[in-house]
Design a protein around this nucleic acid. Sequence first.
DNA 1: TATACTAATCGTGTTTTAACGATTAATAGT
DNA 2: ACTATTAATCGTTAAAACACGATTAGTATA
Lengths: 114, 114
Amino acid sequence: MQMTHCVAANNPVFSSTKQELVEEKNFATLSKALSHPARIRILSILLKLDKLGGCLNSDLVSKLGLAQSTVSEHLRILKQAQFISAEPIPPKMCYRINKKNINAYLSLFSSILN
Amino acid sequence: MQMTHCVAANNPVFSSTKQELVEEKNFATLSKALSHPARIRILSILLKLDKLGGCLNSDLVSKLGLAQSTVSEHLRILKQAQFISAEPIPPKMCYRINKKNINAYLSLFSSILN
DNA sequence: TATACTAATCGTGTTTTAACGATTAATAGT
DNA sequence: ACTATTAATCGTTAAAACACGATTAGTATA
């Protein structure tokens, strides 16, 4: 059964609070961090590594088929979105998935679109 | 308590099945469709309208502060990702949110990152 | 202090996204 | 058949994302 009722532009559903707009913009920004296959691959690996305790950029390079600088940039983007964190274990870096913020993304999604 | 164990590149967590890679790429593509504030705004409005039965491009224009052609392009992207569907009710179009695929995105997310 | 190793940053070229106005296509109503 | 209305498409410009090689910075160890 199709509904074909059309709603006028002055309907309250079109309006939004400042807070709603902030949340939506925030969600869009986080989604952008998730919008590249290599970054999802990285997160997927880091999730599996979570119990084992981290990961190395140089190891990722050999598995992703991307240049070191490219992988570094993807890691930067994921870190900026706080989906991962980085701890220096000289001379290497130990990247970890940030499960809390992964779940926060889900919550935000539900808050906006459920 | 921090774990600092480092994992070698030949660890099985670095490998992946063809199917996993396809899922990840698919998820990244869907995330890209969600990576713009205007598109989230549109989805949010369409969700609220869901019970009322749809929405009009021209009405959206007046509320989003974007040109008609720009809104049309955002709608095209959302439709391509199957987050919305379009039914012509001449001379207007009736856009609807596709809740099923919204939920499918959540499932995909959980399947990859949980 | 010098060396070796890792990851971040820089500079560059290429591709993709975003936004707009203008035009076109489609259709209902006159 | 003509007009009015709506949304898609086209063409253009500007901005951002992506990828790479080369360089730099930082740190532990010799």
